[in-house]
Design a protein around this nucleic acid. Structure first.
Lengths: 250, 250
DNA sequence: CATGGGATATCATAATATGAACCGTAATTC
DNA sequence: GAATTACGGTTCATATTATGATATCCCATG
């Protein structure tokens, strides 16, 4: 079942939110005409919605360049969202323990569109390792957490893009290959990503379930492929499964 | 002149954004009726807007408790806003240098409603000092950055609440006392906050101007009052002024 | 000086957003 | 146990809003 479809009577609200989502790392600022074109909206409509967003601080318009960008009000809301996240607060001690016990970086991730968003991260004790990635997003099909989600949450399959982009020579790009691997992940209880997101980078990931069995998010342990041999990944995977099951309420 | 008033033809969009703003540190989650009451909206309207927000990931509804909270999609947007902030990227090296040269914590802040939002922060070299406050908000009238803003940006005066809450015995609570101090700040070029926000905590702050003279944000240096004697605050204030003027384009 | 593009304003009208009324369920009160 | 209350959610007539075609102004360009 795909994500909840929007109700009638919210077109303007949805349009405004979707305008916000047009701003990305590759397009951090845009003028009115560019925004109306990307949003497939009349420029008058786009202008009015941007005025509304601006009045609430969601976007800001640079008077010198006439370009819009995401505003401080949205920053404040986003940080409020992060800091009040119940899941993040509950999982933080577990991430710390995993990072300490393994020496590798541990992350908490949730799905956003076709990506996994890193909600929290505790760095490992090595110099070489992932760091400072809270807020970044990574494609589902190339991450251990994304593949774990796809294996255990049927709804997540709808998030996959039609084309699976090859990020490295090892990235899974064929749907049938991915489906096979999802079967293995279901049996083992955790997923692996070896040189699939980035050359030299590997991770193990598993899901976190809520009290009703629903998937709340995912956990991972990651580091350079050189340190993550097959047998080590198995051990790390079991640690993750154990940590995740401790997080699930009775 | 108060902030831009919203245009006609955006009521639904504005209502949706304002629903998001109802979620705060003291009210991280709420049910439908509570939200409709706080928003002064019919519950049917609130329900429909929440459905729309939920479909875009701005809020999430906990099925076990029927309560809404800010969602991962908003976290992603907020972090996107933070990481793409031009001001933040430009100011970061300056914060590092200030923290290094002074040993105290340096921050970049912008106004949000009646508060200053910490956009970025570089910790000082001491054990005792401010840390990990990115995303937090502090009242204008009790912070050095807030007072600097009020002194140099006339529009900011409209952000002040009618009552100025006393956070410590030293907090300025009378409008007339604040106006007087703003005059001093204008002459000196920087503001001070001594035990006004929190007992034992002091800071100096100044504004950052854009190429057209408009106020883009504020800078501060802060630490325990014990280390921040009057003469030291003057020196730190001059360093801040100098740093801020280097940030302003020709 | 003419032209084109971008930002912004106007307003008739099509389309949307609204909320009263209703329903089902669960918790609370008597 | 029955009655009452409260909450989440749906329906749909209609009041109200949001829309976008058109116009205007400003600025850059040739």
């Amino acid at each position: 079942m795909p994500p909840a479809s929007p109700p009638q009577g919210a077109q303007a609200a949805l349009r405004a939110i979707r305008l916000l989502k047009l701003f990305t790392a590759s397009a951090p600022e845009m003028n009115l005409v560019e925004i109306s074109r990307r949003a497939s909206l009349n420029k008058t409509t786009a202008h009015r919605l941007l005025q509304a967003l601006s009045s609430e601080g969601m976007v800001e318009r640079d008077e010198a360049t006439s370009r819009y960008r995401l505003g401080a009000g949205l920053m404040a809301l986003g940080v409020q969202a992060l800091s009040s996240s119940d899941l993040r607060l509950r999982v933080r001690p577990v991430l710390k323990r995993l990072a300490q016990d393994t020496g590798e970086t541990a992350t908490l991730e949730v799905p956003i569109d076709q990506d996994m968003l890193i909600l929290d991260e505790v760095a490992g004790s090595h110099f070489v390792g992932a760091a400072g990635n809270v807020g970044t997003r990574w494609p589902l099909h190339a991450t251990s957490t994304g593949k774990a989600l796809l294996a255990f949450d049927e709804q997540a399959l709808f998030r996959l893009s039609d084309e699976l982009p090859a990020l490295t020579a090892s990235t899974i790009v064929r749907r049938s290959d991915l489906e096979k691997q999802l079967g293995v992940i279901r049996r083992r209880g955790f997923a692996e990503s070896v040189d699939e997101l980035e050359e030299g980078f590997s991770a193990v990931g598993t899901i976190i379930r809520g009290g009703l069995g629903e998937v709340l998010g995912t956990l991972s342990i990651c580091g350079p492929t050189q340190r993550m041999s097959g047998s080590r990944r198995s051990r790390l995977g079991e640690m993750l499964r154990s940590a995740a099951s401790q997080l699930q309420p009775a």
